[in-house]
Design a protein around this nucleic acid. Structure first.
Lengths: 291, 291
DNA sequence: CTGTTAGCGCGTTCAC
DNA sequence: GTGAACGCGCTAACAG
């Protein structure tokens, strides 16, 4: 260690200063610190994590970097991590199982202390076994790992209750494929269940996760008596809103999930529930807040 | 190295297998590989980068994780990086000088091989001095580091030329504060210059970078004769589009910068130029493509 | 072709 | 309080 000789002290003294060990005389500490500052020295994380057997690095694997829902969560996660003195390695799975596997491998090789993974349908949680006990899976239900699952059922129910409370009895639903368990099946089931228990006639259809698809499929949901359209995501809600506008049905209200700011801005007749405020954490972990 | 003993060979042989060194007998290689596979072993990046004096890690500091313009660029950067066998450390500056400094410090401590930084007004490129010669600054003009600057002037000019070519002579401009050199001043100057050289009367104003602000400021740009509004960003264009819709001026065309998919979807009367296709790289670097 | 040796920069004993 | 010595997992240089 260069600093040690420059300050005329031993390596371990420098190490102690770096780690705020109290067993250092104040003058010595000041001296070492000034030398460190002068040379812009900073300890190597590689060496530290090699020796200390931990890296203070947490991998955060999102599905898409440009997903607004994930961004909200990531933003909270990052500040919580930084506050605890951890670094984050943000990676993008792109819903790709192989790419995800590579990311996990990299995290393993970097001695990551843990992983926060945003799940997707095809993702096999078993891939996380190297991080067993040190990982959290978001937006997926699994009993093998700690998981934070969004309250998909509740989100749809919340929207339905809202519209139903306004006296609406003709509420359509625009969803995504049930192959996607959480965004697809659970939300659709929640809609159907609500309809059944409240004696409503369900009118629903499935679209791709794209604006154009949502736009086109919307037509199949519109009857003269339709009063609202609940959508499985804000992207679909935007698409539906646009279609409704184009066919002059601005009387129809829109419900989305994700709390995307553009939705309400462009289509004020819409509401969107925020998944981030309504999570279910299983089992209990060290608490972290999205704030 | 555990693998070495298990396979009954020397450490360096294992190392050679790991690094695809040809100087290993095929059987030995196969043996070692099978042992490696059996134990799910993978070499520690910490140890490697400590020894090899390089980490194959590149820091990518974006301003905002949810910026669509940056996401487009990052997406291309990531695939280019992965293709070259590099890892990326994605970080978010949030336009915060201090946070950026911390990120750079972390990258230094992790022995990052280089940095790709998306600049912002207050950012002082001097902070990157530890990575002198090994960094690229995006969206900022500087002669100290390699920089990729978007063609801000050209983007506005392109939009103006487009509308002018359609015969429009009353084109307003909605910009952001000139304190922001690239998004603010350069784009505004480009507008003013175009007006002067084409004998148009400039009508322009400055908004905050928010939907609400853009919405409000739009009014000040609208005259009975107004034919188009060019905006400094797609966010502002969305805001303007909404305002124009609300006041029934859908005859007015909109120009944005950033190629945000929602803009054209919601307001088909708009066009948006893509900064990503029109970059200026200074000085020449190892080429990389956003594709 | 393969094994042995010497550090990379740090934290952690253990002596002083 | 402080310094010297050792080893983390790996690669490069050298010796077979």
């Amino acid at each position: 260690m260069d600093i040690a000789k420059l300050a005329g002290v031993g390596k371990s003294t420098v190490s102690r200063v770096l780690n705020n060990d109290h067993r250092v005389k104040d003058e010595t500490r000041a001296l070492v610190q000034s030398v460190i500052a002068q040379h812009g020295f900073s300890p190597s994380k590689s060496a530290q994590s090699m020796r200390a057997r931990r890296s203070r690095l947490i991998g955060v694997i999102v599905a898409r970097l440009d997903s607004s829902a994930e961004n909200v969560a990531v933003s909270g996660i990052l500040s919580a991590l930084y506050a605890q003195g951890y670094d984050a390695a943000i990676m993008e799975s792109q819903f790709d199982v192989d790419l995800t596997a590579e990311h996990i491998e990299v995290l393993k090789r970097r001695n990551a202390d843990g992983v926060i993974m945003f799940g997707f349908s095809e993702f096999d949680v078993a891939q996380l076994s190297p991080f067993e006990g040190r990982c959290v899976v978001m937006a997926v239900d699994t009993d093998r790992f700690s998981s934070v699952s969004y309250d998909n059922w509740g989100a749809v129910e919340q929207l339905m209750t809202h519209f139903h409370g306004e006296g609406f009895r003709h509420i359509s639903y625009l969803g995504v494929t049930p192959k996607d368990l959480t965004t697809g099946k659970v939300r659709l089931d929640s809609y159907l269940s609500f309809c059944e228990s409240h004696d409503l006639t369900p009118v629903c259809n499935i679209a791709e996760v794209s604006l154009d698809s949502g736009y086109q499929v919307t037509d199949s949901l519109i009857r003269p008596e339709t009063q609202a359209v609940v959508c499985a995501s804000d992207t679909l809600a935007l698409a539906a809103g646009k279609r409704l506008q184009d066919i002059g049905r601005t009387d129809i209200r829109i419900g989305g999930i994700g709390n995307h700011q553009l939705l309400r801005f462009v289509f004020p007749q819409s509401i969107s529930v925020d998944l981030a405020t309504d999570k279910q954490v299983t089992p209990p972990l060290n608490s972290y807040s999205t704030k």
